[in-house]
Design a binder for these strands. Structure first.
Length: 589
RNA sequence: GCGCCCGUAGCUCAGUUGGAUAGAGUGUUGGGUUCCGAUCCCAAAGGUCAGAGGUUCGAAUCCUCUCGGGCGCGCCA
């Protein structure tokens, strides 16, 4: 309907130009803006072309608007055109124009709202990508729900989405995990140590992995604790440096176990945790096309090639024994180390290789969903792409702020330092997957959000998820009651009598339904699933108020069938929208 | 100290990319309703869009500064 009006306006302008009513030499805007009105007293749609064009053609906006309105081709969808305010052109649509929406929805069903504006272009969406050093926590949950919704939305508007999880299976943090696992394993072998490394991973899950390790290897990996700790630099509680202590401990583990056995410990920890994360996300309805290994970038030589490309571009230099990338050439705050003094490549080096690989894989667009705490990292990644001649504007980095959990009006978040953070799994079990998915995307991503656990759990209309799902279930319930009364719904007869839907509530509901494709497109292109979430709540509200104002199962079979068409169409849209957000649409609650 | 994000009704948040009288939910107050399924409907009150300048026909939206909050500023990942 919106596109219809844009088309009419466009031909009106061309007509004016050809008829001499408008200077022929001015350039018409390529896209004529038509907007939904905020207020029904302004009609259903409005355009401000006259205002935006007034300056270039040096005419009064209102006068220009009158001319354009007069030049509009006739349309059976328009009841009235009005020039109002400073020069808006307001469109009042005929009831028939909105009734047609119902027919469209019934014909398209699950496809209603989908479009092809993406043109089949390839978009990669990388999200979560948490280090496999422990279970996902509630912060990762928001990235998961958000990234999944963005990818699904993009697919709905015709992109081909490639969902990817970057697995940081190389690097120091993983060594710390492997060493932590081994130490817990030694405990299971009846070794006792004075205190666990302050920089080690202390979560309970590390003991589980250690038990797994012992189950597979028995005592084969056992070494006396005295030997492990011999001559190590002291840990922080003992007055030393915790970083130096843990690094020495890692080196000792590698030395005592040997490369092969160490790798076994390392991989067991990695695989156990990764399997847990996979399972967690799958239960959350988040699935990936690809799990991309950081380690594979080293093994395939991709990191070396990335360094070589930067080298060839002339943006690397040596200082203090390390190899630096002059990222300041591309707007970064400071230059960054690529290869450390000890010869090890930094995480950044691997990430450059990873992003070069993304570009080489031929994605039209690349989206990274990161926690907001990584925002300082954006300029250096873009700098690296620019340095080797890739186009950094192909990469969008979407930053997701953390969520603060509230329970009983109090913050429910525990410190991450102690390892006693709230896991995503705990959250899912507490409030349910549907509520978690929905609440996470209810706010725009760069907004800090308060996650009210009590509200998410409540089975009342105060809870937006419940409210929306209930609207869906309520339609199903009406259909069940129809059957109980021995009646049946004749869709064709309903379609033929849509003109009977003249009530204010019915008009409002149809207006809402007609907005859905626009909402999906906007939410997708702007990466804003919250737009869809809010729309669904409004639509559910329109439906519930309709339900409360009118009986659907009336004696007049023509009106009854028309109304049933309307509510079934509503059910389609509710289901389609909820599905895009990863929320179920139950038939009964 | 520097950089990024944020600041909208008592609370939680929208605001269609610069448009018309700034909205929704919740909470408060008053009235009505209890009928397919957990109620729902109507009304009122509630705002210096953090503050101050600027850009223009027009600013919550764009620019500058100030205040307040979050995050970041490793040869960690």
């Amino acid at each position: 309907m919106k596109h219809h009006l844009e088309h009419l306006l466009s031909s009106a302008l061309i007509g004016l130009q050809q008829g001499g009513g408008l200077a022929a030499d001015i350039e018409l805007p390529s896209h004529i803006p038509v907007e939904r009105t905020r207020d029904r007293s302004h009609g259903e749609f409005a355009s401000n072309v006259a205002l935006t064009l007034a300056k270039t053609v040096r005419r009064k906006p209102r006068e220009l608007a009158e001319h354009i309105a007069a030049a509009l081709p006739a349309s059976d969808k328009i009841a009235k055109v009005e020039v109002a305010g400073p020069g808006f052109i307001n469109f009042y649509m005929t009831p028939a124009a909105f009734q047609g929406v119902i027919t469209d929805i019934m014909a398209q069903g699950p496809h209603y709202g989908r479009s092809t504006v993406g043109g089949g272009r390839l978009v990669q969406v990388e999200f979560v990508s948490a280090n496999p050093t422990g279970p996902l926590h509630v912060g990762h949950g928001r990235g998961a729900a958000y990234g999944a919704a963005v990818a699904d939305l993009l697919e709905a508007v015709g992109y081909k989405a490639h969902r990817e999880y970057y697995v940081n299976d190389a690097g120091r943090q993983m060594d710390i995990l492997a060493t932590s696992v081994w130490l817990r394993y030694l405990e299971l072998c009846d070794e006792a140590f004075a205190f666990f490394p302050s920089n080690g991973y202390k979560g309970e899950y590390v003991r589980d992995i250690a038990a797994d390790l012992r189950g597979q290897h028995g005592n084969a990996l056992h070494h006396p604790i005295a030997q492990v700790m011999q001559d190590l630099p002291p840990d922080e509680p003992a007055g030393g440096d915790k970083e130096a202590h843990i690094d020495a401990l890692i080196a000792r583990a590698k030395q005592l176990l040997g490369a092969a056995a160490y790798r076994q410990v390392f991989d067991l920890g990695l695989n156990d945790i990764l399997e847990d994360i996979r399972e967690d996300l799958r239960e959350f309805g988040v699935i990936y096309e690809e799990w991309f290994s950081e380690r594979s970038l080293f093994e395939s030589g991709a990191v070396d090639r990335a360094v070589a490309r930067l080298q060839a571009s002339g943006h690397l230099y040596e200082k203090d024994g390390a190899l630096w990338f002059r990222s300041t050439d591309y707007g970064d705050e400071k230059d960054r180390v690529i290869v450390r003094e000890n010869g090890q490549k930094t995480y950044f080096a691997a990430d450059i290789a990873y992003h070069m690989d993304k570009m080489e894989r031929g994605f039209d667009r690349v989206i990274d969903v990161w926690g907001a705490d990584h925002h300082g990292y954006v300029p250096r990644v873009k700098a690296a792409l620019a340095a080797v001649g890739d186009d950094p504007s192909r990469l969008d980095v979407l930053l997701v702020q953390f969520a603060t959990l509230y329970r009983g009006g109090e913050k429910a978040q525990m410190s991450t330092r102690s390892g006693e953070f709230v896991t995503l799994r705990e959250l899912r079990h507490e409030v349910g997957d549907d509520a978690a998915r929905f609440f996470y995307v209810l706010r725009k991503c760069e907004q800090h959000m308060d996650f009210d656990l009590d509200l998410a759990k409540s089975q009342s209309s105060d809870n937006p998820v419940y409210y929306i799902q209930y609207a869906h279930a309520r339609v199903c319930s009406v259909m069940r009651q129809l059957q109980e009364k021995g009646l049946h719904w004749d869709e064709a007869r309903g379609r033929a009598n849509l003109h009977l839907l003249t009530e204010t509530h019915e008009q409002a509901l149809m207006l809402g339904l007609s907005r859905y494709p626009e909402i999906v497109e906007m939410a997708a292109l702007n990466h804003e699933p919250h737009q869809l979430a809010h729309f669904l709540r409004d639509l559910a509200n329109d439906f519930h108020t309709y339900y409360n104002a009118h009986i659907f199962i009336v004696d007049d079979s023509l009106l009854r069938d028309a109304r049933l068409n309307l509510i079934i169409a509503t059910r389609h849209v509710l289901r389609n929208g909820l599905t895009l957000l990863g929320v179920s649409a139950p038939e009964a609650m």
